[in-house]
Design a protein around this nucleic acid. Structure first.
Lengths: 202, 202, 202, 202
DNA sequence: CATGAATGAGTCTTCATTCAT
DNA sequence: CATGAATGAAGACTCATTCAT
C-alpha cells in the first residue's frame, strides 16, 4: 500500500477545504442557488483550481452526500434481539440514534443538506439518496415486524410507523440545528425515545 | 365592494390555470429545475402572457405557497380544553389532523411542494414558510404545555415534542403521496395518533 | 403543403443572416478562432437569439457545409460518354467545372471554408466533408478509367490523376479568391482544362 | 562562434523531443484541438518545463513550420536553363520535386501540418507561411515565363498555371500520406510530371 | 389580450500560462 | 533544471424577462 507523501496530504487537505466550502454554500442556498463562483470564493481558490479536485459542481455535491451516507451506514445496523450476549434492544437502539444524531448535528451544513437534498439535479445522486432513506425505512420496518412478533411492540402498521419514526428523527434534527444553544444530543435522544416508545399521553 | 365582472372571472380562471401548471412543474422538478418554458408550455399560454398574471416565476411559487398556507391555517386552531360545549380534545385533534392531511394529500403536487420547499430563491417566501411552520410548532408547543398542566399529557420537553410531532406528520404525508394505493386518510390518522399518544411499546 | 407566412419568411431571413455572418467569421478565423461572440456581433443579434435558430456553434458550421455540399452535388455528375444525344465529353466537363467554380467563387467566405475545412471539431461534420471529397475523387477516378478504356485519355494511374486534378482545382479556386480582380471563371476554366488535358509542354 | 557544450546538446535534444511530440499532436488534432496538456504528455515533460524551451504553444507551432520552410527552401531553386554545364531543365525539375516530396512524405505529421496549416492563431506565422507559398508560386511563375520565352513551354497564363501546379502537388502529397501503402515517391513524381507536362489526353 | 422573437446577465467549464517549491 | 498546483481570462450556452407587433 502506497504511503501518503506530504504532497498527497496537501491535496487531501485542499479537497477537504473545497468540500467544506461547498457544503456551506450548498446548505445556504441549495444546489442550484449555490453558484460555482460562490463555492470557489468561499474556498478561496481560483476558478480552474477547483477542477483539479472535482470533475464538476455536481460531483462535489455527490461526494458530500456519498461520504455522509457512507458514514451514516457505518452507524446504523439491524438491532440484535436473539443474541444473548448483545445489549438489550433499547440500549442498542439508543446507541445507534445517539451516534447518528451526533454525527449529523456535529456538521450543521451537512445536516441541512441531508434534510433538504430532495431535488438534486443529478438524477443519479438523487436516486442514491432515495435508496439510502429507503434502507433506513426498511430497517425500521423490519424492526417493527420483529418487535411485534416478539411482543415487545404493539401491533402497528409497520410502513406507517417507519415513516413516522423517520419523520420524527428528521424533525428533531431540524430543531437541533435550528436552536442557537442546542441541548446535549443524549438528552434529546432520551426524550425522543420516550415519546416514540411510550407516546405523550399521561 | 367591487363585483367580479366576467372579464375578471376569466382572469381569475387564467390565473388558476397557470397556478395549476406551475404547481405540477415545480413538484416535478423543484423550483430551479422548473424552467419558465415548461410552465407556460404546460399552461398552454404564450411567454409574455404569463407576465400579465404574475410578476415573475418566483411570484407564482409564492402565490402557491401563500394559498396553501392560508388554506391550512383555516384548518388548524388551538384546541379548546376549557369550553364544556366543545368536543373532547382528542376528537378535536383528530378532526384537525384529518382535515389537514386530506387537504394536503388531495393535491399531490402541492404536497410535494410543501415537503420540499426548503430552498426558495426568494428569501421572503422562504421566511413566510418558516413562519408558517413556526406557527404550527407554537400551536403544538402550547398544546403540550397546557396538556401537561391539566395532566392530560406526560411531562415532556414541549419544544422537542412539537418538533417530533411535526416531523411525524411530514413523514406520514411523504409516505401517503409516495404510495401508489394510499390507504384512507382517516385510518392513517387513527394509527398515527395512536403511535403519537401511546407510543409503539406493547 | 403549408404555406410560408410572413413570420416564417422573417425567420428564414434571420437564419440566412446568421449563416452569412457565421460564414464570414469562420472564413476569417477558422472554426476555433471564430468565437461565438464574434458571430453574434457580426450578425448583430443578441446572445440568446442565436440559439433560436441554431442548436450550437458547431451546428451552424455543419449547416453551412451541408448546404454547400448539397449545392455542389447538384452541379457535379458522371460524364455521359455513351449517350449519342449527350454533348461531347469535353463540353460536359467544361460545363460542370464552370458551374462548380462559379458557385464556389461567388461566395468568397464559403470558398475559404471549403478549402480549409480540414479540422472541424465535430467529427461527424468532418466525416461528411471527407466523404464528399471522396465522392468527387471517385467520380474523377471512374472518369479516368473509362476515358482510358475508350482511348480518349492516355493511360494514367487513376488514383494519382484524380488527386492531381482535384488539387489543381483547389489551387485555382484559391488563386481566384485571392486575386483582387479575378478574371472571368469561363476563361480560367478554359485555361485550366487546357493545362489539364494537354499539359504545359510546347 | 560559441561551441555547443554537452548541456546545450541536451537542451537541443529536449527541444527536438518537444517538437516531435507537438508535431504529432498538431497533426492529429489541428492547432486548436491540440491541447497544451496532450503535448507535454506526449513529450513526457512537466508543464512548466515546456516553457524553458518555448515561449508558448503557438511558438512551437511556428518553430515547426519555420524549420520545415527552411528545409524546403534548401530543396527548391530556380531551374538553370542557360548554364550549359547544368542538367537539362526536366531533370533539374524532377530532382527538385522528388527531393521535396521525399522530405514532406517522410514526416507524415509534418505533411499534414503543411497541408492544413491554414489557420494558425498567430497571424505572424500565418503570414510567413503565406509568404513561403508565395515564393514557390513566384518560382513557378518565373519558370513558366521563361519556359514560354524559350519555347519550351506552351503559352499559358503563368499565374494560373503556377496555382494549378502547386495545387497538383498538394493534391498528390495528400494522396501519398492518405494511402496506407504509398508507392515510391519517384514513380509518383514521374507520373505527376507526365500529367503536368503532357496532360491526360491521349 | 396575446404572442414569441429578442435580450443579456449569469452559468459552468476549459486551458494556456505562471510560479513557489 | 524540473515540477505540477494554481490561476483567471475566455469560452459556449441557458433562461427569466421584455416589448414590438
Amino acid at each position: 500500500m502506497a504511503q501518503l507523501v506530504p504532497a498527497d496530504l496537501a491535496k487531501q487537505e485542499r479537497r477537504r477545504q473545497i468540500i467544506t466550502a461547498a457544503k456551506a454554500v450548498f446548505a445556504d442556498a441549495g444546489y442550484h442557488g449555490a453558484s460555482f463562483h460562490s463555492i470557489i470564493e468561499r474556498a478561496q481558490i481560483g476558478r480552474g483550481n477547483f477542477y483539479l479536485y472535482f470533475e464538476s459542481k455536481s460531483s462535489v455535491f455527490s461526494s458530500i452526500l456519498d461520504q455522509a451516507m457512507s458514514d451514516l451506514r457505518a452507524r446504523i445496523h439491524r438491532i440484535e434481539v436473539d443474541d444473548p450476549k448483545a445489549a438489550p434492544p433499547q440500549v442498542q437502539l439508543r446507541q445507534q440514534v445517539v451516534e447518528t444524531l451526533e454525527y449529523i448535528v456535529r456538521d450543521r451544513a451537512l445536516a441541512i443538506l441531508l434534510l433538504s437534498a430532495g431535488h438534486t439535479p443529478d438524477a443519479e445522486a438523487a436516486e442514491r439518496l432515495d435508496q439510502f432513506f429507503g434502507e433506513i425505512r426498511d430497517l425500521l420496518h423490519r424492526a417493527f415486524e420483529i418487535g411485534t412478533e416478539i411482543k415487545l411492540l404493539r401491533k402497528v402498521d409497520p410502513d406507517l410507523a417507519a415513516a413516522a419514526m423517520l419523520g420524527m428523527i428528521r424533525g428533531v434534527v431540524e430543531q437541533l440545528i435550528t436552536q442557537t444553544t442546542p441541548p446535549s444530543v443524549e438528552k434529546v435522544v432520551d426524550e425522543l425515545l420516550l415519546v416514540a416508545l411510550r407516546g405523550v399521553l399521561a
